[in-house]
């Protein structure tokens, strides 16, 4: 029973930490975007505008919980819950420090892929249940995009699995004691990062919610905390992909002097910042360009990476 309690306390702690950092990320992103675009960003509420997060949350919670009368009500409410739940579930297998993943599954990486493939339903069902043309179009795009990019996300990770000889994320980190996988698996790393951006619907791959043509895409009809859950889900996705980049390609918690968890935190933060920088600097491609890029350019590269890794290992 004590053992169970210990796991439960850990799980709740990680959960709270994640949701809080996802919320803080909204503030950090706006400040950084401001910095890079030569303006201030939110700086009025609290020190450095830090309490802006609280203000935003109060605003979202204070809004009326509105479900459009033409919506498919149960599905409409279910969709944002899926968005947040799948992303939080995926963190179960991430090793934050030696011996501290919440569950060291021997199929850890597959578990992540499974959760990210289930995350598609959030957008798809959100768009369907809204019963709105923009939302439906956004959801269709999103489903097509997610399915295509999932294909080579899985393929790009196989090189790492082959070199580490395991699906377990803890063992993948251990296998990087001599050399981080970002060097032998450079191509895999680049491919995974691009796929990761597409999976988390971030700019430049945020076509499901491209506001210049689809108002807000799949979450057009959402407001209040239900919108907030989609929003937090997206930021959780950013943190998740960053944590996986760290774990799979940059040695996870390995590093000299500093304690392991701090190394993990530092590396992950770096990738989160990279996500924001990409948003600040890249234009959005057209939808057909996005799909063509995925299938005609990235898929062959992922297969090439896999073949070469296989040949080298043999």
């Amino acid at each position: 029973m004590a053992e169970f309690m210990a796991i439960a306390i850990r799980a709740v702690a990680v959960l709270l930490l994640l949701v809080v950092s996802a919320a803080l990320l909204t503030w950090a992103e706006r400040r950084l975007l401001g910095l890079w675009q030569d303006r201030y960003g939110p700086n009025r509420v609290g020190p450095f505008g830090l309490l802006q997060v609280v203000a935003d949350m109060l605003k979202l919670l204070g809004k009326q919980e509105f479900v459009p009368p033409f919506a498919d009500k149960p599905v409409f409410i279910l969709a944002p819950a899926i968005a947040m739940a799948t992303m939080l579930m995926a963190f179960v297998v991430i090793p934050f420090a030696p011996g501290f993943p919440l569950a060291d599954l021997n199929i850890g990486l597959l578990f992540f892929l499974a959760m990210s493939s289930l995350a598609v339903y959030a957008v798809l069902l959100g768009g369907y249940a809204s019963n709105n043309k923009y939302a439906l179009l956004g959801a269709l795009r999103s489903a097509a995009q997610a399915l295509s990019y999932e294909v080579f996300m899985g393929l790009s990770l196989l090189g790492v699995v082959m070199q580490a000889g395991s699906f377990s994320l803890g063992q993948i980190v251990e296998a990087q004691r001599d050399l981080w996988f970002c060097i032998p698996q450079f191509l895999g790393m680049v491919l995974f990062f691009i796929a990761g951006i597409a999976e988390s619907h971030r700019l430049p791959f945020d076509l499901p919610e491209a506001e210049h043509e689809l108002t807000a895409g799949f979450h057009t009809e959402y407001s209040g905390m239900k919108f907030g859950m989609f929003f937090v889900g997206e930021y959780l996705g950013v943190i998740l992909i960053s944590a996986l980049m760290t774990t799979l390609f940059f040695g996870g918690w390995l590093g000299p002097v500093l304690p392991p968890w701090l190394w993990f935190l530092l590396k992950t933060t770096l990738f989160v910042l990279l996500f924001v920088l990409l948003r600040a600097s890249l234009p959005r491609p057209r939808y057909d360009q996005l799909m063509a890029f995925g299938w005609k350019c990235l898929l062959p590269l992922a297969l090439l990476n896999l073949t070469v890794t296989g040949l080298v290992l043999l």
Binding site: L113, S117, A143, L147
Partner: peptide, 19 residues
């Protein structure tokens, strides 16, 4: 098999059907 069940059936084939 459990992971594949989710990735292939729940995560890909059913998405297409819902689509």
């Amino acid at each position: 098999a459990a992971a594949l069940q989710v990735i292939v059936y729940a995560g890909a084939i059913m998405v297409l059907m819902v689509f």
